[in-house]
Design a protein around this nucleic acid. Sequence first.
DNA 1: CGCTCTCCTCTTTTT
DNA 2: GAGGAGAGCG
Length: 806
Amino acid sequence: MPSPDHRSDPGLAHTPRPGGIAARAKAHAGPEPGYLGGLNAEQRLAVETTEGPVLVLAGAGTGKTRVLTTRIAHILATGRAQPSQILAVTFTNKAAREMKERVAHLVGAVAEGMPWLGTFHSIGTRILRRHAELVGLKSNFTILDTDDQIRLMKQVIAAENIDEKRWPARQLAGLIDSWKNRALGPDQVLPGEAQAFANGRGGELYRLYQERLKTLNAADFGDLLVEAIRLFRENADVLELYQRRFRYVLVDEYQDTNVAQYLWLRLLAQGREPGQRNLACVGDDDQSIYGWRGAEVDNILRFEHDFPGARVVRLERNYRSTGHILTAASALIAHNQGRLGKTLRTEDVAGEPVTITGAWDSEEEARLVGEEIEALHVKGHSLAEMAILVRISAQMRELEDRLVQLGVPYRVIGGPRFYERMEIRDALAYLRCVASPADDLAFERILNTPKRGLGDATVQVLHAHARAARIPLMEAARYLVETEELKPKPRGTLRELLTAFGRWSGLMDTLRQGELAEIVLEESGYTDMWQRDRSAEAAGRLENLKELVRSLEEFPDLQAFLEHVSLVMEIGDGDTNERVSLMTLHAAKGLEFETVFLPGWEEGLFPNQRALDESGRAGLEEERRLAHVGLTRARRRARIYFASNRRIHGMWNATVPSRFIDELPESAVEVIDAPASYSYGGYGASRFDTVGQTPSSYATPGWQRAQARGFGSPGGGFGRGGTGGGGPGHGGFDRGAGQARRRGGTVIEGELVAKSTGSSAFSNGDRVFHQKFGPGAVVAVDGNKLTVDFDKAGRKMVLDSFVTRG
DNA sequence: CGCTCTCCTCTTTTT
DNA sequence: GAGGAGAGCG
C-alpha cells in the first residue's frame, strides 16, 4: 500500500511510495500481507489485478519476475486457487526453476509445490502423455531432439529419392519447424511455402515425416505444442477439463510466444465462464529477440485486441541501471517503430557514461576489452560482475584467446550444451536402447559406435527388413542373426551386441541406473574407445561421461532420467566463482552485471547483415532490441567497442561502426580515444547521420574521404599520414594489421612479464597438458610464460598456470 | 569397411 | 579459419 499513513503490520518494512491506486488496493482489505511489502504502485496493481486478462508490460529491470511470483503468492494466499489450479508457463527451465523457488520462498513450501508451473514444452508433454492415444501416440512416446529430427528427415528424403545435397534435411527441418511454430499441419501448409522445398514436395515430406514419427512413437519439440492443440480442438471434453482446472493462467516472456503457443494459451485461458478467463501475460515488446525462431511480437502488440477488456499495466521504474545507461538504452530503442511504448526511468544517479571505443581490428578490440577487465579487477571489481556480450559466437574465440593470455578466468555461457555433446548423446543412445528396444534412432546411432564393423551395408539390410516387416530395427536384427542374409563376421558381431543388450535390459531392475550405465559403457567398449583416443578432447569427454553417470544417480529411475534429458537440456549449474562471463546477447537476456562489455558494434555484424537481408526493417528492429537488451544488462558500466577491420569467414573486411552507435544520445556517451592504438580514435559522423539528427561533434572528415575511396574506414590513412592513398584491397589491410600486431606484441610482453612471479616450475622438454590445446611439449620458458608445441594444436604461448604436467 | 582428403558452408537458440 | 560431410581410395 503506497500511502504513508497506512497502518501496517508490525515489522513490515516497506518504503512508502507515491501512487494513486490506494483505493483499488484497499478493496482487498484486511491486514496487509507481508509479501506485498516493497512493491511499487504499478507492481502492486499488476499483482492484485487477479481477475480477467492482464498484460503486464515490464521493461528491463523493472521487477518482472518479482511481480509474477508475488502474483502467484497472492492468488494462493487469498485462497483464490489451489496450487494445482494455477498454470504458469515459462520458456526456459531456468526461468521455471527460479519461479518455483521464489514462490516457495514467498508462501512457504506448499505441499505439492506447483505441479503446473513449467515450460510450454514440459506442460505440453504432460498433457499429451495423459491423452496420447487421442493423437495417435502411446503415452511413453519419446521426444526427439534436433539431431534425431534431422536424421529422420534425411531418411524420409532419401526414401523419396530426393537428392539430399540439393535439398538438405536441415532446410526441411527449418521449414517444418516454421510450420509447427504456426500450428500448421501438413494439410494446412500454404501451397506457396510447400513449393519452397524439392519442387513442391515440402508438404508431402512433412506428412511422411509425421507418419514416421507416429510409427516410431515419437514427437519432436514442435509436436509437444501442436499435437496438444490438436488434442484440444478435437476433444472438447478434454479441453474443458483443463479449462476448468486452470483458474489462473500466467505467462512469462509473452513477447517470445509463437503462434502455436498463443493458440495453446488461448484455448486454455478462454473458458466459457468469465471466472475462467484469468490470464496474465508478462512481457516486454522491446526485448523480443526471438523473431527468427517464430516468436510473434504481434502477440503482445495485439493483446488488448485478442482479449477484450484486458487491463494493461506498465512497469517503467527501473531498479537496475544508472541514469546514463538507461538514457542510452531508451534513446536507442526509441528508433523502433511499432512498439507499445514505455519510458524507463530510474531514481539512481547518472553514473558513468556509456563508453565507445574504436579499435583497429578485432584483435586490438579483444586486447582493449581484456585490459579494461584487468584494470577494473585491480581496482577491486569482481570478475563475476563483468560480462562480455557478443552478437555471434564466432566473436568469442578471439576474446577467449585474449583472456587466456592474460590469465583472466572466464566462463562461456550457452555454447554447446552438455547433453548435446557427442559422447553424451552416444551414451544416452545406449541407455535409450536399453530402456526401450524399439528406439530405432538410438539403435542406429550406436550400432557402429565404437567401430565394430557394422557399417553401411549392415544398416541397409537391417533397414530393409525392418521396413518390410514393420518392426523396430533391434527386432529385425534379432531375426537376421538367425538367417544367412548377413555375412558371418557382421552377423557374429551383431549377435554379440544383441546378447549384450538383452543382458543389460535384464539388469535394469536390479541395478541402480548409474551402475548400469557404467556397465553398459564399459562392456560396449565405448569408454574404451575414448581411453584409446589420444586427442586433446578425449580426457574431457571421459570426464563428461563420469558426470553423466553421476547425474544419473539423482533420478529415481532410467525412464525419469531420459524424460528429464529430452526436455531439460542442461546439467549442473555454472559456478558463480570469480570469472568473467562470456556469452551471446541472446543468452544474456534476463541476466545483469555491474559492467557489460559490448564488442563488435559494426555494420554487418551488429546489426547483422543476414538479419537485414532476410527480414528487412523487422530484422533491423529486432537487432536494435538486441542492442537494447545488451545495454540494459548493465547496472553501472556499459562499454561499447567496434573494430575497423574484422575477419569474416576467414577474410579480412573493412568495417563501419554500427548505426546503433550513432543512435545513442551524446549526453549519455563518452567516446574513448584508445591510447597506444592504431585504431582511429573516435568514430565518424557516419553516413547514417540522417537529416534532422544531431551531427556528431567527433566527426572526422577523413572518414568520408576514405568512404569515397572504397575503404570502410580511414584505416590505412589515419594517424600515420599520407598512406591513405594506398588504395583499397588487402595489401593495405595486411600492412595495417601487421603493424598493429607487432605493436600489440610489445604490450603483451609488458603485461605478462609484469605478472610473472619468479621463474616457472617447468623447463624445456617437459610434457604438459592444456585444457584447451591438449598434450604438448615445452620448447621455451620465459618467466611464467611457456612456449609449447602441442601435439594437435601446434605451437602456442601459454601461461604456466594453464597447464598441468602430463 | 574405414580412413583421409577435399569441398562447402558459415547468425542468433530453447525446448 | 574451421568444422562437418561426402567422396574416393586403400
